[in-house]
Amino acid sequence: MSSRRNFLKMLLGLSALSLPWTLWPGKINQTFQSWVKRPSVKLITPMSELPQGVTDEEMLYHSAMEDITALSAPEMQGRQAGTVGENKASSYLSKQMSSLGLIPMGDQGKNFTQVFTIPPVSKNVVNGRLTFIPGTLGSLRTPSVNLLGAIKGKVQDQVILVSAHYDHLGVYQGKIYPGANDNASGVSCVLEVIRRLLRDGKPARKTVVFAFWSAEEMGFIGSKAFVQSPTFPLGQIQAMLNIDTVGNGPVGDFGLWSVNEDNIAYQAVRAAAIQAGASAGRTPFGGHNSDQASFAQTGIPAVTLMAGDWLNKNHTPEDTIDLIEPEQLELASDIVYRAVQLLAFK
């Protein structure tokens, strides 16, 4: 009897030990699915009617400051390309794009994402700014994603591209680099332009594609990846408008990066700034650049809009939402909106 009791105790003990391991794979699978899950996409032309399930109180009237708050939050971990923080940021943006009813323009046109890979990097502080340094060539590369969606126009093979990079610098020496201005501000402007166009409800003449690049901070890797393997023909792009670090400094003071002033992208943004009562002229690069460079190298008219004081606290842990001037951010969105009107609606 005693031996039987001991045998039963042993069986119960083994059962208790084996139960967690039986359930563990299911938990892993659930966690994995939550990481890779993308919102469902409704394939519609959003200019004709509001996306089903979207209300005024939800996505259409979501504010740019709410976007910056979300993207610069501690749980985003600085949005470094190839990290969990980037994955969280891309999930946030995918949800916004899906809820607003954009047409997927990523790989094979089936979703918003364009997958590419990035090389290993290290970090160093140069002149008070944290920067990436290329790692060993040939080492294992890490996946990253661009996000692309469109509002289809009457002429679908003529495209105005509006973009901003959503990645930043991640964590360095235990400190999060939030990147509220660089470049959650630019991302929020693009989203605000999308929402405003949808609220207008007017059909565009040309197709407007909205892109969120990753790995800009590592040398424009995301936008270069698109140019090298575009998800739609590069020849369709009539102009490229890029927005980078626009939320700080004196209200109405902006700069423009462009290889020259003789292109329709630069001219449209400059004209839009004048219409909006702002100042925006061609600014020397000073050893800096942004994603418009990837397109300018192919001959596509391209320009980047930025705040005149964009370098203030740039690439530091102090680039928080406290740096953002709401009026400056609203003005930047208005300039981009007006430029899109000039290029895609006339």
Rank of each mutant, 00 (worst) to 15 (best):
Ile194His: 01
Ser2Lys: 12
Pro39Gly: 07
Val159Glu: 03
Phe345Ser: 05
Asn263Gln: 11
Ala73Pro: 00
Ala211Ser: 11
Gln328Ala: 12
Lys346Glu: 14
Leu191Gln: 02
Thr245Pro: 00
Glu217Met: 06
Ile68Met: 08
Asn127Ser: 14
Thr142Glu: 03
Ser163Ile: 06
Gly170Cys: 08
Gly170Phe: 09
Pro39Arg: 11
Pro120Gly: 06
Ala265Ser: 07
Ile324Arg: 06
Ala332Tyr: 02
Ile237Gly: 07
Asp253His: 03
Thr131His: 02
Lys175Cys: 03
Lys346Asp: 13
Pro104Ile: 11
Phe254Leu: 11
Asp291Tyr: 15
Met97Cys: 05
Tyr177Asp: 06
Gly78Arg: 10
Gly101His: 02
Ser185Trp: 02
Asn29Tyr: 12
Trp310Met: 06
Pro233Tyr: 10
Ala332Met: 07
Lys88Leu: 15
Asn111Asp: 15
Val126Arg: 08
Val187Ser: 03
Leu148Lys: 01
Gly109Gln: 04
His288Ile: 13
Val125Thr: 15
Gln173Tyr: 03
Val246Glu: 04
Glu49Gln: 15
Asp309Tyr: 13
Thr69Tyr: 03
Ser34Val: 06
Gln341Pro: 00
Asn87Val: 14
Val208Leu: 06
Arg141Trp: 07
Ile221Lys: 07
Lys27Met: 12
Val41Ala: 05
Gly106Val: 05
Val155Arg: 07
Ser40Val: 15
Val125Ser: 05
Leu102Lys: 07
Trp24Lys: 05
Asn181Ala: 04
Phe116Tyr: 12
Arg4Thr: 10
Ser139Lys: 09
Leu331Met: 15
Lys110Glu: 14
Ile176Thr: 13
Phe212Cys: 10
Leu342Met: 14
Arg129Ile: 11
Val162His: 01
Trp213Ser: 06
Asp167His: 05
Val115Gln: 12
Ile133Gln: 13
